[in-house]
Structures are given as structure tokens and as C-alpha cells.
Design a binder for these strands. Structure first.
Lengths: 238, 238
DNA sequence: TAGTGGTCTAGACCACGAT
DNA sequence: TCGTGGTCTAGACCACTAT
């Protein structure tokens, strides 16, 4: 929020959410906005391009920037968002149950990660419930080389909050894959699955700002509760 | 390619792909690059931020831009990419079989689209096969108000190619949802599914540059063949 | 013709990392 | 201290849309 352009981004996003700029209307022009906020046009453009990327607006050359009808929920798949943040922002009434914390090596084959060395990690298994229904089984492997120890209290609250606000780590990007698989006996049990039901598995590797790999995550979703919403822009393959 | 910054983007991306800038190495600094390409630093920065978004590099303040180990395939889910483009870029040996072309109204409830009016469209059902195996069943509804007619030849080749290069439409963005569902009898038949197997369904609404909605698509994926790869950057919910 | 967004420039100052 | 990327400016020219 300390940058001009992100302050402007949040201000405009807020006005779109609160219908001060209604869906289908045009924002003030870039030159008008630069006068409004007392800044240069390039700075306004930086804010607008963030709004564009996040699906708030569509820019039309020669006409202006039009407000889109967005109903994105940004489920965890589409970005890197912690479960706690999601819970808060969507007003879900969910609970997290910590099933297990112990030291384990990362099962690298599962994550399609090629290495010859063993990766010591803290293994955390957690079950996410909404209204008593089990929805997601999360299994995290956090590398010991980056985070030596994780307490039960931290796992019950939020790993990301701990990493970012207590340890000062900056989480930057992740690669993830989504597949449909047959559940293990254990998964069947925790997620209360019927016979023959498949599960959706999201596996990701998460990296810090300095490109250090520090976390492997496996999220097992109940098929009937899985719903991933995305906003995408066209980009030709070249 | 006619802009400086996208020319520079492609040039650097190419050099990364061909290991002229190897994984783990630093790119020349922004000032060096601006001298190299004979341009201003802001233009270089625009090219670099594209590389950042697409997962080619990671910028580290005070140090430089480091080349990432990317193995993204960008399956259709993560962006808006036509099947033909994918096929070409991944060297898959796939075939498309046109099952049906006819006039239908869009089943708007399925797409969670609220409207009271009927939407006349051309319905196109196509089956995608790789090595004789049916992988995806695509059902498209293309609004008559934007594209009055679609021929069998076009459907067999590429709708996107036709829209963009023949009709001059500019496809801009889409909203999509991914769910797991029980297949219909028809879907079971076309995708040669075993008893009890679920399918992955991707439903999207696609828009033009001027925010005109013009296409609804339903893609039914065989669960064992579904694999979605993504690259995501951290963005806190605020 | 006037207004819009798209590109590009040359320069400035700052925050951060390495030395 | 020096070099890196991050932010910001004031201005320029272009392509497109509307009238």
C-alpha cells in the first residue's frame, strides 16, 4: 500500500466492488485519473494494468476502460492463497484439524521432482471441514533447510501467516498440477468417500523470492465439493 | 512483434529456451539490456515483466533477474488456447472428429449465466482423440449474433483460427469453472469410460475485446487423461 | 477533429544486496 | 560504496473511436 500505483489500484478496485464504478460503465480516462490522483499517466497505467490482469476491467483502445462483471472467488488453485485467507475472505465457516506432524523425507517422485538427494522436511497433514463435512485433505512437506521446526499451534492456525509474518519469508511463486486419481484407503476414510469415488489432487511446489524451493503440498479434494473458478486472458502460443 | 518490448520479450524468451541464458544464471542487468537493444530502461522492464508473469524469470532486487526452470505446458485450462495451437506446440498426434453441428439455444443454467432471453447459437460437438484414444469431448455454443454460420470444415479444423484470422474477431478473456461430475450416458459412450468413472468438466464463457460474450464451451475430460499444469504467483487477498 | 488508450523516452530518486 | 531492480515523472508520438 505504500506505492502510489498499488494505492490507486486498491482505491479503484474498492470503488468497483462497491458499485461506485458500476459494471458496464467506463472509468474516467487515464488523463482524468492522473489529475484526480495527482500523479503521472504511467503510474495510472500501472494501476489499471493490475486491474486488467485481475479481471476488474477491460481496456478498449480509443474508448476507455470498462468495468467487468466479475464473480471470481479465486479458489486456491488459481493462485497461491492460504486457506486461512480464503476462509476469511469468503466467510466460510470452516475448521482445520491437524492430523499429524512429524519428520519425513519428501516423496519427490510424487511431485515429479528430480533429485538424487533426500530432502528432510516437516510433514503436516490437515483436514479442512466446512459445517462438519470434510472437504480437503492437505499434506505439506516443509523443508527443514528453510524452516527447522513447526509447532502444532502454527499448523492449526496458518502456515503462511507464520512463514511470512513471523519468519519474514517472502513466498513468491509455485508450480502446480491438477489430476484426478483413485483415493487411498486413508484418503477414503478421512474424506468420507463413497465407493468408486475419485478425488481431485493438486500438487504444488512453492518457492521463495530468492528462488529457493521450500514447500511441497498435496491437496486431496472431494470431487463433489471441488469447484475451481478462473479468469484467463487470451495469449497466443508463439 | 511490431512493438519493441514484445520483440525483446520474444528474443529473450527464445534465448532462455535455447539455453543461451541457462537456468539459474542471471540475465544482463536492465541497464545493460537497454544498451544491448538500444532502448530505454522502461521498455526493457516491460519485456522483463512479461517474462516474469509467464514464469521465465524471477527478479531479485539488488541482484538481478534469474532464469527459472520452467516446464510449463499450459494446458487449455490455464489460459485461452485453442486445441489446434496446443496440438502443434506439444507435438501431439491428435485428431478431431466432428460429431454434430446444429442450431440450438444455449443451456444457460449449465453455465451459471443469468438471463431471461433465449440465446440462439450454433452447437458444435467434437471429440478429440490421441492415438485413437478419446480424450476430450468439446461442446461449443457460438452465438448467432456474433457468428451467423459455421461450416463443417471450420469445425474440423479450428474455430479460433476461423474467428481470429477469417472473421477478424479478437478473443480477449474468459471465465471458467472446473468441476468433477458423473458422466451422462452419451459422455460415457464417446469417452469409452468404465463403470463408475467420473469426468472432469470445464465450462467457460469467452468474451471479445469489446466485452461481447460470444461463446459458451463445455469440455468433458477423461479423468485418467486430465492433467492441468499451472504457474502461479503469490498475491495476498486484501 | 478531439479524445481515448498504446508505446517509448531520458532522467530522477529510492531500497536493497554485495563488497 | 557501487550496482541492482522498484517507482515515478513529464512529455512525446502513434493508432483507434467517435462525432
Amino acid at each position: 500500500m505504500r506505492n502510489k500505483y498499488s494505492a490507486i489500484y486498491h482505491d479503484i478496485a474498492d470503488k468497483i466492488v462497491h458499485r461506485i464504478y458500476p459494471v458496464g460503465s467506463y472509468l474516467p480516462s487515464e488523463t482524468q485519473l492522473s489529475q484526480l490522483y495527482g500523479t503521472s499517466r504511467e503510474t495510472i497505467r500501472k494501476a489499471l494494468s493490475e486491474l486488467l490482469i485481475n479481471g476488474f476491467i477491460q481496456k478498449i483502445r480509443g474508448k476507455g476502460s470498462i468495468v467487468l462483471n466479475l464473480q471470481r472467488f479465486n479458489f486456491p488453485v488459481s493462485g497461491i492463497t492460504s486457506y486461512k485467507e480464503l476462509n476469511r475472505s469468503l466467510n466460510m465457516h470452516s475448521k482445520t484439524e491437524v492430523l499429524c506432524i512429524e519428520d519425513r523425507h519428501v516423496p519427490v517422485e510424487k511431485f515429479d521432482y528430480q533429485t538424487t538427494e533426500a530432502l528432510p522436511a516437516t510433514y503436516v497433514a490437515r483436514l479442512r471441514k466446512i459445517d462438519q463435512d470434510p472437504i480437503v485433505l492437505d499434506r505439506d512437506y516443509i523443508l527443514k533447510s528453510v524452516v527447522p521446526h513447526i509447532s502444532h499451534a502454527v499448523a492449526a492456525d496458518s502456515l503462511y501467516d507464520y512463514f511470512e509474518n513471523k519468519l519474514g519469508l517472502t513466498i513468491s511463486y509455485a508450480t502446480k498440477t491438477i489430476t484426478v486419481e483413485h483415493p487411498s484407503v486413508e484418503e477414503k476414510k478421512w474424506l468420507a468417500l463413497n465407493e468408486y469415488e475419485d478425488v481431485v489432487v493438486i500438487r504444488s511446489r512453492t518457492y521463495l523470492e530468492d528462488t529457493t524451493l521450500f514447500q511441497f503440498t498435496e491437496s486431496i479434494h472431494r470431487p463433489d465439493k471441488f469447484n475451481f473458478v478462473d479468469f484467463a486472458r487470451r495469449q497466443k502460443i508463439s
